[in-house]
Design a protein around this nucleic acid. Structure first.
Length: 419
RNA sequence: GGAGAGAUGGCUGAGCGGUUGAAAGCACCGGUCUUGAAAACCGGCAACGGGGCAACUCGUUCGUGAGUUCGAAUCUCACUCUCUCCGCCA
């Protein structure tokens, strides 16, 4: 959510920022509502003040057994005016909120301008594309051939966009998540959490999924929603808190399933397990002081990258352009892993700085020099486990159809070298 | 699922129709004392918003929403959440 004071002071900059994100210029409308709201408020507050004074007099007179008839009838007159002004203030407040809560975050000045993913820019890469002496297969061919990835049975149980992993591949998924959590908790300074997979509306509002993107989520009825990412529970851990400065930075991580309805992705990536209604992910979340958030984004990115480096898989990092970023982000890096079977780079992590955008929605502040200041929040995948599994299958496949186990994962397999 | 209790400031916890924005304690900040620290003592310390260049001033907020009243943390209703006991259960 946006700071109304910023819009008041910088309406043109604000409109320009929104245009970069594909929104219409709307500051004139916001400021008009804001103006009426404040004028109403001023008149209302004067009347309230008058009422309060009179009520105190009445109390005083009554305690002295005096006659307060006059004062009481005066207050009764005020009441009507007060109520209608309150109503107007309320209406304007709601109008303002419904606009403000639906506008995306302002891009950081280092973010490239652009419309969609084609305008994302190259940031850096690590290692290079592996060479194969045979034609590498795509992940589902590898998995289905050895009978350990099963889509038909999954759709029997749950419909399309679900998958069943079996035996060594199931174990591979588990070992990947263990490896990631171990790395982040032991080397990267994150604290591990086990969190609820069902959350209430407030939490989803806090991180920005609601009110605008309910279609992308699954509901569990009774005001419970399935989390689309552990960002939601981890970030909302500090909702409505005033933190002590020495609690910062907070770095948390969690391994969870993620549930997404993929409402807008009809026909996209229907083959394989790249885009599922349910997938697992290790998430990283940071809560920091404002002045450190861009540094923290770089740090978080490095932590996510460290996983792929250890797995020895080639990837590149892209800076998302203004039009391709998620709703709450002011800057986002995507890590795209190389998939030799597909011969494509595919997103495996997305690391975002949300600035104070989520903090304002969540009302999360910290105390500094006697002032309450909104924190900055960041989140990133560290990494998407399902897609990491795909990357391992495709990058570590051998001509005979078997798959080598990456060295860092072998300890989870009794030092076996092949799946 | 049945029965009961509760929700007050960063935390604990009084208040139960009229200087109560809210006692007290803890935490925190400043000071005195001390070689330094601790202790002790003194002082400060809620959030959000409106108006004002500012000193300042006004309003709102005691889980959330509605209601009663001249006036509500205090009364009424609904909702949400927490806790205890019983049942069921991984």
């Amino acid at each position: 959510m946006h700071n109304i004071n910023y819009i008041r002071d910088n309406p043109i900059e604000f409109d320009n920022a929104m245009k970069l994100r594909g929104e219409d210029a709307i500051s004139y409308k916001i400021l008009e509502i804001d103006k009426i709201k404040r004028e109403t408020q001023t008149v209302l507050q004067n009347l309230l003040s008058e009422r309060n004074t009179l009520s105190k007099e009445i109390g005083y007179l009554k305690s002295k057994n005096g006659n307060a008839k006059n004062e009481i009838s005066k207050v009764e007159e005020l009441k009507e005016k007060i109520n209608s002004l309150k109503e107007l203030e309320n209406i304007k407040e709601n109008e303002l909120n419904s606009i403000l809560t639906r506008l995306p975050n302002i891009p950081h000045k280092s973010v490239p301008n652009g419309k969609d993913e084609k305008d994302n820019t190259f940031y850096r890469q690590w290692s290079s594309k592996p060479k194969f002496s045979f034609k590498p297969k795509v992940h589902y061919e590898i998995g289905e051939k050895i009978g350990l990835i099963n889509f038909e049975n999954a759709s029997k149980l749950s419909g399309s966009r679900f998958v069943i992993l079996k035996n060594q591949i199931s174990k591979l998924e588990r070992s990947i998540s263990n490896f990631m959590l171990d790395k982040h908790t032991q080397e990267n300074g994150y604290i591990e959490y086990s969190v609820p997979f069902l959350v209430k509306e407030d939490s989803l509002f806090g991180t920005g999924q609601l009110p605008k993107f309910g279609d992308d989520l699954f509901t569990a009825g009774d005001d419970h929603w399935l989390i689309p990412t552990a960002e939601v529970p981890l970030t909302n851990l500090v909702r409505n808190e005033i933190l002590n400065i020495n609690q910062l930075p907070i770095r948390s991580t969690s391994f969870t399933p993620c549930f997404r309805s993929e409402a807008g992705a009809a026909g996209k990536d229907t083959r394989g397990m790249l885009r599922q209604h349910q997938f697992t992910k290790v998430e990283l979340v940071s809560v920091v002081e404002p002045e450190y958030s861009q540094d923290e984004l770089e740090r978080m990115l490095s932590c996510a990258e460290s996983i792929l480096k250890d797995l020895n898989i080639h990837y590149r990092v892209m800076t998302l352009c203004s039009g391709d970023m998620g709703f709450s982000a002011n800057k986002t890096y995507d890590i795209e892993v190389w998939l030799p079977g597909e011969e494509k780079y595919r997103e495996i992590s997305s690391c975002s700085n949300c600035g104070d955008f989520q903090a304002r929605r969540m009302n999360t502040r910290y105390k500094k020099d006697d002032k309450n200041i909104l924190v900055h929040t960041l989140n990133g995948s560290g990494l998407a486990v399902g897609r990491t599994l795909i990357a391992i299958l495709e990058n570590y496949q051998m001509e005979d159809g078997n798959v080598e186990i990456p060295e860092v994962l072998r300890k989870y397999f009794n030092n076996k070298t092949l799946l």
